[in-house]
Design a protein around this nucleic acid. Structure first.
Lengths: 225, 225
DNA sequence: CGTACATTCTAATGAATTAAAGAATAAAAG
DNA sequence: CTTTTATTCTTTAATTCATTAGAATGTACG
């Protein structure tokens, strides 16, 4: 076996992972799965696509060993094969953000209040939250918060925000985050809070970005693997 | 513009980067370019492919803004858009190595002396090299060494190794490295050295892996950007 | 100014991919 | 055992991609 065909074989294997992340739908699946395990049904509903299509994409991700699946009753539950897969997604998005001007423009366009959306400095956030100077809320569904969330963050799912808004102190700035820069839940929350006269900002990080930056998370159970 | 189509747009942009790294040839181009800028001719020769094909792949990489090009006389020189692109390649390869068993098997198969190829611990290497207990040689072409190399490493291109072998002290272990785990230059050097009765090991890291691990490099010029 | 050389552009073909619709399977519940 | 529900498999058409070969472009050198 000569050197060239060996090399071809190696790069071909890595390209299998590359092909797996070459589809918008599969990237979105990876991002949602980075928040915790989900059934095919949940994923399809999250992406607004047909269950069959979701299943097909998950099958390809599984073929590249980026996700694993198990049956739980009537449902099949998928999860990422490891945290390195979430880090790969973050790295990929960062390269795209850095080099694709169009992506930045689209990102800017998608925010309702561009002037306040500047991602907060990560360094000071922890300390400010610890001292109670700011209130950090996690607006993702409760299950995702339970699996892992930012230190000092309290769970306040978007769906409950309207009815529970009184729980948030009036004299503190509120910082909301969700799944990451592409997720719109925090933006919705902030719009809602501002309409109620609260001072609110968005933290564009999600738990994956936070983890990729080497910062600590609070998790109920330490994930095996 | 609704939320769904906005999201689709964002993920589609990231998927453009994904598509760019979904081809074995383009991945190999990125790895070679991570060693420094090269002309189309050099790249085509390095990959053993037609110049036209190399140009086509480079065009796609350029469309994804992963590389930039400039004209230098008769030649067109390509280089990576930034170090984050090299880090993306490393992350992608690491995920593939971690989760694709076949890749690991292929990697094992490609080494002549599997028992000695264990990648050396990075921690101790610097110190041992500093104290002169081991001799670290960089067997890549001189130009790549000049751009960036590991601390305490001396340049000893594979092509010159046979004639310059006397420069290496007989009573020291020699550690050879090249472009990374997929590069075979260090393996060739080690085989050669062992045939001459030297004690030699391979460090499977290249400068990108070294950098990704957060370790220092020696560079002649600080690269702008 | 024209030749030589390196690179890119332009088809053209076969292979691979996406998404949709219908058929088929697998497990759980009555 | 049968029905229900959830998921996967199969087929299809439209799209995109890799590779090759030939034409065209751009730069340097005489």
């Amino acid at each position: 076996m000569n050197k060239r065909s060996l090399k071809d074989l190696l790069y071909e294997q890595v390209a299998r992972v590359g092909s797996a992340v070459a589809s918008p739908k599969r990237l979105e699946l990876l991002e949602v799965l980075a928040q915790g395990e989900k059934t095919v049904e949940q994923l399809a509903s999250e992406l607004s696509i047909d269950i069959k299509l979701a299943s097909a994409h998950l099958k390809r991700l599984k073929a590249a060993h980026l996700v694993t699946s198990r049956r739980a009753g009537k449902h099949v539950v998928y999860q990422l094969s490891g945290t390195d897969v979430a880090l790969l997604w973050v790295q990929l998005r960062q390269v795209a953000e850095e080099h694709l001007l169009e992506l930045r423009l689209a990102l800017d366009r998608m925010v309702a209040n561009p002037e306040h959306l500047t991602p907060m400095a990560r360094e000071g956030l922890l300390e400010q939250a610890r001292r109670g100077e700011i209130i950090v809320i996690d607006v993702r569904p409760r299950a995702e918060y339970d699996r892992a969330h930012l230190p000092y963050a309290r769970s306040m799912p978007l769906s409950e925000l309207v009815s529970r808004i009184a729980e948030l102190p009036r004299n503190r700035e509120i910082v909301a985050y969700c799944r990451g820069p592409f997720c719109l839940m925090a933006d919705e929350a902030i719009e809602m809070l501002r309409n109620k006269g609260r001072q609110a900002r968005k933290l564009s990080d999600g738990v994956s970005e936070w983890q990729a930056a080497g910062l600590p998370l609070e998790t109920l159970v330490v994930t095996p693997q």
